Amino acid sequence: MQKVSFSGLDHSGKSQQIRMLVHDSPQLFHVTKPLTEYSQRWPKLEGPEMSRWWFETVSVEELTDIIIESLNRRNEDQYEGKITVLDRGWRMFKAVCVATWLTIEKVEIQEATAETTRRFLTKLDYEPSEFEILLVPNAKYLRSVEPARCLLSSDVNVFPQRMRQRYARYQTYLQEAVKDCFASPPPRRIEVDAPILEIQNRARTLLNDAYDLQLPHIGDTALMVVGFGGLSECGKSSFAEHLRVHHGFYRLKLRYFIECVESRGEKATPERVAMELLHFFQRHYYVQHFSIESLHDPYIPAFLKLMLGKRFKIVYLDVDKETRCRRAALELGVDSSVACAIVEGKDHTKLDRGANTVCQIADVVFDNSSESLRDNLGRFESLLF
């Protein structure tokens, strides 16, 4: 039975690439469960408690045996007629064992590798055969997208400093172990030096060549996507309408895609909402330019930036409160005090969601306070195109 494994250092995007791969081709692939679901010897722990068990409670020998037992059972998890997709291949888990050994014990990598290899040879009850894809992080690229990555990191403040320092050591050892464990035969390497969609399409090209598939590249037709953020009455709709009329942009409302996800009983995570948008782009392949209103928090735009890269432009329209109240009064035909109350109410909701923090990751922060819309749009075009 054919098996494809995605391996790489932590946070290199393995699981994400697998979800994206099977999203539009579930009939072709069977994705196995997390390794911890293949043995009852795994504790039901998360976060700091799991870290404590992994590095302080269980012995390295026992941990390695649990991993091998789980790999044996995972190997039986197959679906007739489908390609089995593994989140981390057997060599990746071997590297995990070596790195854990180095983190806990004062041994050389040769000793840790030799002991891990001995246990794998003795206890792994199948002959591994995987089409291995190794995701290799590019440090320069990852630094360039660090603001967006940090926004989406859920465990920054969960672990105490001691555990974070230990995890950093583990990652250093894991990098060495991966280099050693994947030395021969070499896997198919994909350097993570581009947005998520680009990495996905490279993986699809490898799989098409290996299995004579016809997986389409995704997201290629959306050449430019502009997302508008800002507080109430800052001009988001006016700017989006200008792009539609004068530059052929297709206007989208972000709330619609959030509701699409929620209508399935799912939580509207940044990744799920982004995938819903991507599905729309795919179905409207003949449209090359889109605008999105409104970016009410920084998390969805951060993920879209990671997914689309430079094709996604985050625009934050900055307008002082007095001007926004005056515009609301004119638009609604009410006096200034009523308009200010309406603006403040809307602002309160948006600020609770973090709408004002979108400016921290924006490609363009535009001062739209001037009363001349024509002049403002002219200046805006010169910055955007």
Rank of each mutant, 00 (worst) to 15 (best):
D10M: 10
Q17E: 04
H23A: 09
D24R: 06
D24L: 08
S25G: 02
S25F: 05
F29L: 05
V31G: 08
T32A: 07
T32M: 09
P34I: 01
E37Q: 09
R41H: 09
E46F: 10
E46A: 08
P48T: 14
R52H: 10
W54T: 04
E61Q: 06
E61V: 03
I68P: 01
L71Q: 07
N72R: 04
R73Y: 05
D77R: 06
K82A: 12
T84P: 01
L86W: 15
G89H: 00
W90Q: 06
W90L: 03
M92D: 07
V96M: 05
A99F: 02
W101P: 02
T117N: 01
R118C: 08
L124H: 12
D125R: 12
E130A: 11
F131H: 10
I133D: 00
L134A: 05
P137C: 10
Y141Q: 08
L142I: 14
R143P: 00
S144V: 06
V145K: 01
A148V: 10
A148P: 00
C150E: 10
L151Q: 03
V156G: 05
N157K: 08
V158N: 05
R164H: 12
Q171C: 06
T172G: 01
T172Q: 09
T172V: 05
D180Q: 09
A183Q: 12
S184R: 09
P186W: 00
P186G: 00
P187A: 03
P187S: 01
P187K: 07
R189A: 09
V192M: 06
V192E: 01
L197R: 11
Q200K: 04
R202T: 06
R204Y: 04
T205S: 13
D209V: 00
I218Y: 04
G219Q: 12
G219L: 12
D220W: 13
T221P: 01
F228M: 15
C234D: 11
G235L: 09
H246I: 00
H247N: 14
F249A: 14
F249C: 07
R251S: 12
C260G: 09
C260Y: 11
V261Y: 02
E262Q: 15
G265V: 12
E266A: 13
E266D: 15
K267V: 15
T269Q: 01
R272D: 05
A274R: 02
F280C: 06
F281Y: 10
Q282P: 02
Y286P: 13
F290Y: 15
F290N: 04
L295K: 06
L295M: 08
D297A: 12
D297C: 03
P298D: 02
L306E: 04
M307V: 05
D320H: 11
D320Q: 08
K321L: 04
C325F: 02
A328W: 03
A329R: 07
E331T: 05
E331Y: 13
L332S: 15
V334K: 15
D335G: 01
K350G: 04
K350I: 02
L351S: 12
G354P: 07
C359K: 15
A362I: 00
D363Y: 13
V364N: 15
V365W: 02
D367T: 15
S372I: 07
L373P: 11
F380S: 09
E381L: 13
E381P: 00
S382A: 13
